[in-house]
Amino acid sequence: MSESKRFFKALFKRKIVAVALFVILFFLFCAIAAPLVATHDPYYQDLYATFSNPSAEHWLGTDHLGRDVYSRIVYGARVAFLVGIFAVIISAVLGTLLGLTAGYFGGWVDSVIMRIVEAMMAIPPIVLALALVTIFGRSLPMLTVVLGISSVPAFARMMRGQVLTVRDLDYVAASRIRGNSDLVTMVKHVLPNCLSPMIIVMTQSIGGTILAESGLSFLGAGVLPPTASWGAMVNDGYTWLERCPVFALSPGVAVILLVLAFNIFGDGLRDALDPRLRGGR
């Protein structure tokens, strides 16, 4: 059996992982093909037809500005993926750089980097994100960067831990003895060995980032209107729980589904990539 076949077999051993992947792909499809999937312009508002109940015209009713809730959820998937993926890429790149450097060189470099990382960890993430948003404004790219920065420490620590386990292995030492520079050694030999835990943590962080976005929205620091983001929609909706339950609950359900899917898929990946550990680095 080939390596990739074995991987996929392990990955989909639990059917729920396949379901999770299906949910992710479904939302991804919604995000990419939003204009085809949506039934309305997500920004079109009819102020005379607010809070309408679900109907053939508006599948999930309309919101407080008379916008189509279903179409907004579809377009909101775009923001969710954009913010989720880019924020995680930012934190993964920064975290990897810091963790790799700290772990590989050790000594005072390690001390300095890890103290900074720990300092970042000691500041509550929401406070850090709120402060950054206050300083730099509430735009979507800024929000992505802010959410990315606040999860850098997790990646840095994980990466450093990984590097420490492979650093002293024979082939890394061999590479150094062969006269390869530190940079080459790191990129060629240390980094590839750290990739699979990296992918696992990244998958799991996407969910966390989508949640954090909704939390920031609640505290008044989410994306600016009228952007159709799930966080902003959950925040808009919850005040209308009694008046318009579908509008109040559906964005939250979308968040739960996608985050759940990412988490379960992340677990599945971990099991498949690292059968030896079956969970837990």
Partner: peptide, 18 residues
């Protein structure tokens, strides 16, 4: 949000500063 949309429909570009 409502005002922003109405202005955009009339051809304005609306920036926000909070």
């Amino acid at each position: 949000t409502a005002v922003q949309r109405q202005l955009e429909e009339a051809g304005f570009k609306v920036n926000i500063d909070l």
